[in-house]
Each structure stands twice: as structure tokens, then as C-alpha cells.
Nucleic acid binder design. Structure first.
Lengths: 208, 208, 208, 208
DNA sequence: GATGAATGAGCCTTCATTCAT
DNA sequence: GATGAATGAAGGCTCATTCAT
């Protein structure tokens, strides 16, 4: 046991601590960006909130933009993973979309800070071109393509209204965001109610 | 008499000139903010594009934020006016909503610069609290209330799905924005196609 | 008369003032860089010494490096002009070199601050490669080439020791700098003594 | 006894190790400063190149400036030693100067990194006051005084042009540096050619 | 004693705002 | 009343130095 413990070498410790900082900084940045907006946020504030010095922050991230990109990269991946891994494929293409959406909503509801950033940068998917970072564009695009793929299957199966899949994906996400914002506003934490409302809306709007 | 008349004339001229400046600056600011984003835009650029000196700009507006607020105030009012004045009340509460929306879409399609700003600041209506100016919040809120009023009538008449009118209003606007962004992306200027798609979607989503 | 005076339009005034600032900043920068060294100097200090705000400095110059480059460009040109325009060609190729050098020495003796910078960056001509700006390299190189040209003529005329003209030019400049530094150290302002010493040395070292 | 012996050994080992570090750091610093320039060099780089940790570097040296000072101190002493120990006093005062210079040139030619630093800080001897460290000034001054001593002897013996010995010393060093830089530029490693050129120049310039 | 991760003071640069002309 | 040159506060980032492990 002692031997196994000793195997945690200096390199491992270093890497582990670096990862710890990374996580702390991302968490703090998410909070600060969500509260004050990206532009208005100061790196000094992010560092202070993360409980590290400015130099430490810059040892882990290349710059301010890099921090935002990292948030989008990390959370975007988690979001996509949450949605795709929970999509109930056995229940048919429509249920796959709906259950995937359930997971997607639950993930964002559980991450209110990222939700704010997600919404703040939300015009990315709404308006093709914008003044956001390439990383954000890439992240939203990936998510859109995946949703469009699921929608295409459902449309091909005749269980959803045939439309441009990308447009439908955008319409869906827009609705989700409104629902999520409404959920935040209510402040009752009723995730199940949220999921139910979203399901009802989606069935009406996309699968009549 | 001559003196009084001259005074009045002077005042009129002054007021007229101020209004001229105001219009030129707002038009320029709308363009610049749309192209570069609010934060990235410089007051110098706005003044230059408006063809006025920086000092003149600051004589008409209190600051950068005030210019953005003025855009939202002015266009927001126009937008609301366009929608409400074109709402076909005679056709019943549902048609009132639909025709009002038609006008709303047509107005934004005709003002691409404001459309971009509208979309950029679009999270305002999606997320109650944010790091946008109070004026923007107020403006979006006013629009929302009016839409909600029309929706309430339609719901009461049984021609629309009964839901929280404010939530429905937000869902509608979100869908509109996606449709508008898609319209911009297509670049074919097919406003009638846009209006048709929006109508079809609204009927599905809100009046099944 | 009034008309002629009126011809000094706003543009002229603007340009004149900009030139005034430019000169004041360059003079101040020369002083500060000479006293503290380029790296140790702060832009804030340069601006303060020039009696202008930081923003004004940056309206005239693109950055810190640009200020140094401008000094080298401006003074380098003046230096070359002083030397070449005073070179007595009628007196033969040797006298051309000597009289050109006289003017060169007198110019630098009259500009002690630039002299310091000139000496500080003096390794540029001594050592081909360095960590100085391309502009400095270009400036020193131009000066070297011109001197080498004069030396070649004198060597071809048999009045100077035949050697690699560029090496001889470097040896000459090095001697000049030492003499100039010595002149500065003496602090007696005896330029004629300086010129005489330089002439004597040059005749010994290059035209025995 | 054993204890005392152990203590002494411990001290010796400690001192030896410290000297080992010192040498490694100076060697690395010399290389890094030569390649990137003093200001642009980072202590991290110096430590890494020396193969020691940053903390070790700071245990041996007080700071960045101290490292540069140590280089000048160490190499300056070696340089002076090389020149004085090789000065052929038996051959007369002129030959003493010339042979001392030979050794001086050969030492620098053999230490290209220090040569670069030597040239970079070369304005120290050219200009009495500067923004270099007191240690550098002191080192160059010591060298100058020694050369001046040799020159005085030669002048007194009537084999060199009578002039201010310090000025002549500076002129000599300046010529040496140019010749050394030229030698570096040629890159042919022909030290004997360098020595010959320097001798010829010195005889012309100082002992006609 | 050695390490190198952590620190934070300080610098260059931008741009909203003011005010003398 | 209009102008736009001038201002200077504020922010992102670097790197010499320290100190807990």
C-alpha cells in the first residue's frame, strides 16, 4: 500500500496540482464572466476569485481569450457528451432527440454560471458570423451538427416535420435557452417541470 | 416682434440641427456597432462615420452607453409601432398576433444593422438579469409585455395554447431571431419566404 | 499682410503643432534614453519630460521602439548630411575624408544626448549582428557605406593605407567615438581641440 | 577529531559544490546574455541552461545584475591576467604593449560569448558615465589603468606617440574591438591574421 | 541543501471623455 | 456652436524574486 502510494511521483503531483489550478481558474472565470460579462471582467478578478496569483493564471492559460475558449471547450464537450450519451436510441429517433434534450437541459440547469455564458454567447448559433472567438464558433458548430444529425434521422423516419435540419436545430436550441432562462428566473429549481415544458413545446413545434 | 421671431427661429433651427446630428449619429452608431460589436467600436469611429466631431457627439449623447441605449429606445419604439399598427385586429386575436409578427419581421429584415445589434443583445430577453444596460432591459421588457398582451387575448379566445404569456412571448421572439438570422445567412432577400416560414412555425408551436 | 497671415490654415497649424510635439518628444526621448538607457526608460517618463500626455505621445509614435527608430533615423540622416555636405571635395580625397569627419565630430559634439545613444547602440557597427532594431542596423549601415565610399576613393588615389574599406570605416568611427567621449569627459567644450586631435590620429592611423 | 574532520570535509564539499554551481551558472549566463542580450534574457533560461534550479541560482547570486557583474569581474580578471602575464617585458616597452595585446586578442577570440558581452557593454570604456553597473565600470577602469601604465612606459621611452595615456588606451581598445568584431564576422578563425592586422594598425596609429 | 511553483509589482498601450480654441 | 487635440485612468501581460516543500 505504501509502495503504491509512493508511486505518486513529483511529476504526478505537479500535473495534479496544475489540473487543480486549471479547474479552480475555470470555475472562477465561469463565475466572473457570468456575473460581469467577458469584456468587463478583469484578469485580476478572475485570479483573485480562483485564489491564485496573476502569474499562476498566466502559467496555465495563454491569455484572457484562452480562458474563455477553455470554458467553451470544456463545457461544450461535457454538454455534448451529456446529451449524446443519454439519448435513448432504443426508443426511436424522436425519443432519442427528446431524451438527449432532457439531459442537455439538466446539464445546463446544473451549471448556472456556464448557462449564463452560454446564453451570453448565444448569438453565435443565432447569427452565423459574429465577433466571438473561433473556438466558440467551432464549439457551437459541433453541437449544431450533432443535433442536426439526430433531427435528420427523425425527419427521415417521418416523426418530425421536414425542414432544414440546421434551422430546426437552431430553433430548438433557441427555445431551450428561453426555457432555461425562464427556469433560472423562477428560481424554484423544478428541473422536472422544465423538462416537461420543453418536451411539450418540442412535440408541438417539431413533431405534430 | 422681430426679436421674438428671430429667437423662435433660432431655437427651431437649433433644435432641428440637433435632431439632424442625433439621427446621423444614431445611424452611424447602428452601423458601426453592428459591424464591430459594441465593445470593440470606438467613439472616434462613430463620430467619423456620422460626419461630426467627437465633441458634437458628446454634446448630443452623454456617453457610449447612452448611444446604445438611444438606438434601442428609438428602434424599439419603431419596432413596437410597426408590429402593433399592422396587427390585424379585425381578423381575430390569432391573426392579430400573426400579422403583427409579419410586420415585426419585415421591419427587422429592412434594418439589417439594427437586426445585428438586436440579436447581439438578444440575451436580454432570454435572461432576465444580465450585464446589459437598464435601458435595454426596459426596452425589451416593454416589447415583451405588449406581445404578451396580444398572446393573452389569443389564449383567452382559445386559439393559442395556454401557457405563461411572457414565456410564450420569449419563445416566439427567440424563434423569430433564429429565422431572421437564417434569413440574413441565406442572403437572398426573400422576405416573403421568411414570413411564410415564421407563420408556419408559429402555427405549429403556439396554435396547434 | 492679413491675407497672407490668414493663409496659415487650420491644416498648417495642425501639422505645425504635430511637428512641434514630434520634436519635443524626440528631444525628451533622446535625453531620457541617454540617461537611463532604452530598456530602463518608461514611456510615462518620456511623455512627462516632453511635457505631453501619454496619449499624445502615442498619437505621434506607434510605440516605444518607434521612438528609438525615429531618433536614429532623424539624427542619422542629419549626421550623414552634416558629414557629406561639409566634405571638401576640392581639396582632394584625403581632405574630403578629414573635413567630412570634422563636420561629423562637430555635429555629435553639439548633440551630447544623441551622442550617448549613438555610443550605447555603438556595438551595431562593431558587431554585425545584435539585438538592436532593424532601423538602427539600416542607419548605421548606410553611414558605414558612405564612409567606405570616401575611403575607397582615397585609397585608390594612394593617399590612404589600402585595407578593407568597411573595416577602416569601422576603425575610424570607433576612434571618433572614443575621442568624442573623451571630449565629453573633459567638459571644456573645446571642439577645435577635439577636431585637431582626431585629424592627427587619423593621419597617423590611416594616412601615414 | 573525526567530528572535526567531518565538519571540515563537509565545508569543503559545500564550498566545492557552490563553486561548481557558480561556474556552471556563469558559463550559461555568458552564453545566454551573448545570444539574447542582457535585458532580453530571463533568469529562468539562465538557470535551465546551467542545469540548476532557479532557487539555486539565487542562492549563489544576489540577482540578475549580480550575475552580469560576476561575468565582468571574472572574465575581466582573466583578461587582464592573460594580457599582463604574456607581456614580453624583456623585449622593451613597445613590445610589451604589443605582445600583451596579442594575448588579450587571443583570449577574447577564444571566448566568443564573453566577447559579445564585452562588445555589447563596450561603451563603458568609451563613455565614462553610463547606465551600466558600477561593477562593469570598475572592471573596465582597472583594465584601462593597467594599459595606460604600459603605454606611459612606452611613451616615456619615446617609442610611442606622447598623448594622454588613458585616451590612447581607449583608442587602442576601441580598435581592438572593431578588429575582434571583424574577426567574428569573417568566421574563418584566423587568429594569427587578426593578431597581425592589429599589430600593423597599432604600429601605425600609436608608434609611427 | 535544492527545488521550481507561486507571486505581484510594474510597464506598454488603448480609448472614452473633456475643454480650449 | 463645433471642433478634435489632448488627456490619463485602467487593463493585459511579463518576469525577477521568494519561500514552502
Amino acid at each position: 500500500m505504501a509502495t503504491r502510494k509512493a508511486k505518486t511521483t513529483g511529476k504526478d503531483v505537479r500535473a495534479a496540482r496544475a489540473e487543480l489550478y486549471r479547474a479552480a481558474i475555470l470555475e472562477a472565470a465561469e463565475r466572473v464572466f457570468a456575473e460581469q460579462g467577458y469584456e468587463a471582467s478583469r484578469m485580476q478578478t478572475v485570479a483573485a476569485e480562483a485564489g491564485v496569483a496573476l502569474g499562476t493564471l498566466y502559467k496555465v492559460f495563454a491569455g484572457k481569450q484562452d480562458v474563455l475558449d477553455a470554458i467553451h471547450r470544456q463545457q461544450g464537450e461535457k454538454l455534448i457528451h451529456a446529451a449524446t450519451s443519454h439519448a435513448d436510441l432504443a426508443g426511436g429517433p424522436l425519443e432519442a432527440v427528446l431524451s438527449g434534450t432532457d439531459a442537455y437541459m439538466r446539464y445546463l440547469a446544473a451549471h448556472p454560471n456556464y448557462l449564463k455564458i452560454h446564453l451570453a454567447g448565444g448569438h453565435a448559433w443565432a447569427l452565423g458570423s459574429g465577433y466571438i472567438s473561433p473556438e466558440q464558433v467551432r464549439q457551437f458548430d459541433t453541437g449544431l451538427q450533432i443535433i442536426a444529425l439526430f433531427l435528420t434521422r427523425a425527419m427521415d423516419a417521418g416523426v418530425m416535420v421536414r425542414e432544414d435540419p440546421l434551422l430546426s436545430a437552431r430553433l430548438m436550441i433557441a427555445a431551450h435557452q428561453v426555457m432555461l432562462a425562464d427556469y433560472v428566473d423562477r428560481g424554484d429549481g423544478d428541473v422536472e417541470g422544465l423538462v416537461a415544458r420543453v418536451r411539450a413545446y418540442m412535440l408541438r413545434a417539431f413533431a405534430p
